[in-house]
Design a protein around this nucleic acid. Structure first.
Lengths: 150, 150
DNA sequence: CTGAATGGTTACATTATGAAACGATATATA
DNA sequence: TATATATCGTTTCATAATGTAACCATTCAG
């Protein structure tokens, strides 16, 4: 069971990565983009806090997104240290396309499972003890030991 | 579903790694050790073929195992290029301990799932299209593109 | 006003990785 | 037999991912 889960998880994430590649987007960039869309104007620090991504890593992620014109670092009126992150129209379009791919990915993963079976599978997976340690929307692969401990 | 599988797979493998750490064994070394036990005397090349591990990587893995006295590189009587890999008595003991930990890991992963539920979960996971691409005993994280394509 | 804390960035060391070159040996071919 | 080609294992090298720590500007607390 453990080995199977590990194998499947690796395959799934690899698939998603190649699926996103045509957009020039990496999975981690996708996660950040999605979160910026949800919380426009939040700082990089807040973003890192929410996604448990260490600050030094966030820099290069946002750099890439900004270089491609998907995200803007605006000035924060109340704190001149912080940058307020905003989605550009291009960013919004990119996110929409990525979300469409993600839905496609989801269908591909589940294959010919009926909706009932799909729910059953989800239910069983969520009952695994490890599922309790997962934070919603946070991928542990991006998490630093330190951030995870907090 | 995809995200959950990816998260769980990452957690599971991370857990197994820390579980094995007290033995001074890495998951990949465990895999190799187990396979050597099954096919004593096979060459590194054959091992790499079976586990889809590229040759240059196999060197350091076997180096580590040999340095710790778990595996021996003996001369192959019929081919002086190849090394015949054999488990030492220490290697056998180590493998036994690791297998015991793996069994424990398995129980920890499944938590309070009943045997029937466990089978159900396994069955559903195996019906996922991606499961068809998995090779038994081979972890895709160790395979190179090239080896995987063959 | 001074010292500590914070947001963001950069510099650096560490590690993991595969491709390719290499030497020794084996196999096929002429 | 002689020669070319393939194989096994190893080493070398370049590349990429990562975290830690130092750093600057700014904010906050006393």
């Amino acid at each position: 069971m453990g080995f199977l889960l590990s194998q499947l998880g690796y395959q799934v994430s690899g698939r998603f990565k190649t699926l996103l590649a045509p957009l020039g987007l990496e999975p981690r960039q996708f996660l950040v983009l999605r979160h910026v869309a949800r919380a426009q104007g939040s700082s990089q620090h807040a973003l890192g806090q929410a996604l448990l991504i260490p600050p030094s890593r966030m820099v290069s992620i946002v750099d890439a997104l900004e270089r491609r014109g998907l995200v803007e670092r605006r000035a924060n009126p109340t704190d001149r240290r912080a940058r307020a992150l905003h989605l550009t129209p291009e960013g919004r379009g990119m996110l929409a396309r990525a979300l469409r791919l993600a839905a496609e990915h989801e269908r591909a993963i589940c294959g010919d499972l009926s909706p009932a079976e799909r729910d059953q599978l989800l239910g069983l997976l969520r009952r695994l003890p490890l599922a309790g340690e997962l934070v919603d929307g946070v991928h542990p692969a991006l998490t630093s030991e330190e951030a995870a401990a907090s």
